[in-house]
Design a protein around this nucleic acid. Structure first.
Lengths: 261, 261
DNA sequence: AACATGTTTCCAAATAATGGAACTATCAGG
DNA sequence: CCTGATAGTTCCATTATTTGGAAACATGTT
């Protein structure tokens, strides 16, 4: 099918895990049976394997949900991630300038995965955002990131997107998305004006380092009452500067000249 | 071997992932070759599958590390985890009483995985603890948790443990661990007196709900200069109370229908 | 240029996954 | 207490996948 390499048994298992992780509600065996269309025997075996390995847990009411063993893996993934470490100081600078929430994320499939977040008040729990995956078409970082893709890859990606109307302003079709991307390319930055969450908007710029196959972005997010067009206008330059610095560090800091550890 | 069920291909892949995630340094292909003892062909294929699935990323210098796709999975696992949600208010109470860092974690294999953390100052990044896995024998929660195990299961677990001396006070053999557990059972709470990190100690109590196969604990952690025997003595009752409340909520709150497994 | 080290590809043999069907458990209603 | 419906589990011959040795390929070193 389409462009995905075959990963055999593992791929099937992870697809199942993804299904369980992506579902809005907890799924029972029979829900999964319908969703996957697999025979009972196969599905049951796959689930048992996932459960034994700790990638899936069975909740007290018999529903399947992502397992807590994943926390350990993710904790290591985050701690090791060089890109994130490298971006951190630039996020701080941007955060100091704007005083608003700063996000850093990267493209993964047709979603943006948030790698880090800096918030003025640390009231909101970190896990509520880091690791979260949001659709490309309704986030500033998402649109900024894919505006840099080559046409063939963009076409592939757009085809994968399943549009969902989160708010009245959400982009809900490919044509509108392409229009938006045109404007973003022209301006050099992206905005999300309450397209994902009502009352929240952001200014974002892409961070793309072709040599490392990295496609992502950085953004400043704020509630609408603190982010009128005036404020957003003031954020554009700092956001772009931060994005540029991160890309530069990535391209430069990790070249042959630099020694690791 | 020993007591683990067979999970075929998936199990092998996840073992490999665990190896990559658990290593203190980034591993290259040949490191993994030595560690796993597998033939090149097989290892390469397994790694490729993990990489394609996003469970493993290849860093710019060619080393393998846990993939950022795991962040998404873990983020969901954390958000969905009913036990954690249920424990949160009791953690808050304990945190208000003591003013010190509160941890909540559960047993997974021979390790304690931290499910949540409340800190007076949110200076330390959350991912630095949540999802972290620490050995049972040198953490308060770990010792409290396993002090409640039945003898046969405890024996199994102790056999899995590979003791490592983190500090001068670390328990480094099974006999000493069993002694410590005896005292913990007698007292009804556990302490970690700089056994994992120099300068850090904690008071912990177990949270065990047999009907839900949950084994874990809650703890108050502080630097030694703020946690003398006087202060620790004052924490014992609140910690035990919090542990008891969580266990109670778990036993009552979640079972309209009694499930067995 | 020759070598050592690290990585990828290939394919017949060995092994594991597949999925249909039969079986068991649980529950609601009469 | 029985009956049928829904949910979950086990079994096993067939089929597809993983396995691992060997050889090719790449890259950096003396």
């Amino acid at each position: 099918m389409s462009s995905s390499e075959d990963t055999g048994t593992l791929g099937k298992a992870i697809n199942l895990l993804d299904l369980i992780a992506s579902a809005p509600d907890a799924l029972r065996f029979s829900d999964l049976l319908k969703l996957t269309g697999q025979p009972k025997g196969s599905l049951h075996r796959q689930l048992r394997h996932l459960v034994v390995e700790g990638l899936v847990d069975i909740s007290p009411d018999g529903a399947y949900q992502p397992g807590i063993r994943l926390l350990k893996f993710a904790s290591r993934a985050w701690a090791r991630n060089t890109v994130r470490k490298l971006a951190e100081p630039h996020m701080k600078v941007l955060h100091d300038i704007t005083g608003e929430t700063v996000h850093f994320g990267m493209l993964r499939g047709a979603e943006i995965v948030y790698l880090d977040k800096l918030e003025s008040r640390q009231a909101v729990r970190m896990h509520s955002q880091v690791g979260n995956a949001s659709p490309v078409y309704c986030t500033g970082i998402g649109k900024a990131a894919i505006s840099c893709l080559a046409e063939d890859r963009l076409a592939d990606l757009v085809q994968q997107v399943r549009f969902h109307r989160y708010t009245a302003s959400t982009i809900t079709d490919a044509a509108a998305l392409r229009d938006a991307l045109g404007l973003i390319r022209q301006r050099g930055y992206a905005e999300d004006l309450e397209e994902h969450q009502a009352g929240i908007c952001c200014v974002a710029a892409s961070v793309v380092v072709a040599s490392q196959n990295f496609i992502g972005g950085i953004s400043v997010t704020a509630p609408v009452f603190r982010a009128g067009s005036l404020e957003r206008g003031e954020w554009v330059a700092p956001v772009r500067r931060a994005a540029g610095s991160i890309a530069e560090d990535m391209a430069y800091g990790l070249s042959p000249a630099h020694q690791d550890r």
